[in-house]
């Protein structure tokens, strides 16, 4: 079982607190992301973005959330057997959770290297699979957590604070 954490040092306390005792979310959304369905993939992120605009989240934070959630949602469609995207909104942060049905990531550290990709032909035909998904998600998140093993499902979750210090 592989596990990967990347937390912005200055936010370590708040992130740990959030994960050790997750409070009840103010607003929750859930989206089914089917395997290789690039027509519907991206709809979840788009709805999340609309919702955050309604909440008045500032445009720079919104941009980071849009990039990270869209990348992660496309990843789910491109590399997994499908899964679920959940979005938990609090008054100070957003928690995005992507849980798939496998096949798992063999080496997470390797997957984090920019340019590394296991995308197949079909995925590349759609214009995805440049190997920039995970590094890009990490760049735009305040905390990133990935848990996976070969042959099992992958959990990717990230936190982005609304007023980043």
């Amino acid at each position: 079982m592989g596990e990967y954490w990347n937390i912005k040092p200055e936010l370590e306390d708040s992130v740990k607190q959030h994960f050790s005792a997750p409070p009840e979310a103010e607003v929750e959304l859930e989206f089914e992301v089917p395997e290789k369905d690039f027509n519907t993939a991206g709809r979840g992120s788009s709805e999340v973005k609309d919702l955050l605009k309604r909440l008045g989240v500032d445009s720079e934070t919104l941009r980071r959330i849009a990039v990270a959630s869209y990348e992660a949602e496309i990843n789910l469609a491109a590399h997994s057997k499908g899964g679920v995207m959940s979005c938990m909104i609090y008054d100070d942060l957003i928690h995005l959770r992507f849980l798939d049905k496998g096949p798992g990531i063999e080496d997470i550290t390797q997957a984090m290297i920019p340019g590394y990709s296991t995308a197949d032909e079909l995925v590349r035909e759609f214009g995805f699979g440049a190997g920039l998904g995970l590094p890009n998600i990490q760049k735009n998140s305040d905390a990133l957590h990935i848990q996976s093993a070969k042959g099992s499902s992958t959990l990717l979750e990230l936190l982005i604070f609304f007023s980043a210090p």
Binding site: V27, L51, K53, R54, G56, V57, D91
Partner: peptide, 21 residues
């Protein structure tokens, strides 16, 4: 000219969002 915001304050906006739901 933002039109989408439910409220200037995010906490009130969340409250409104819950009521909308």
């Amino acid at each position: 000219r933002p039109i989408m915001e439910l409220d200037k304050d995010i906490k009130s906006a969340i409250k409104k969002m819950k009521r909308i739901n």
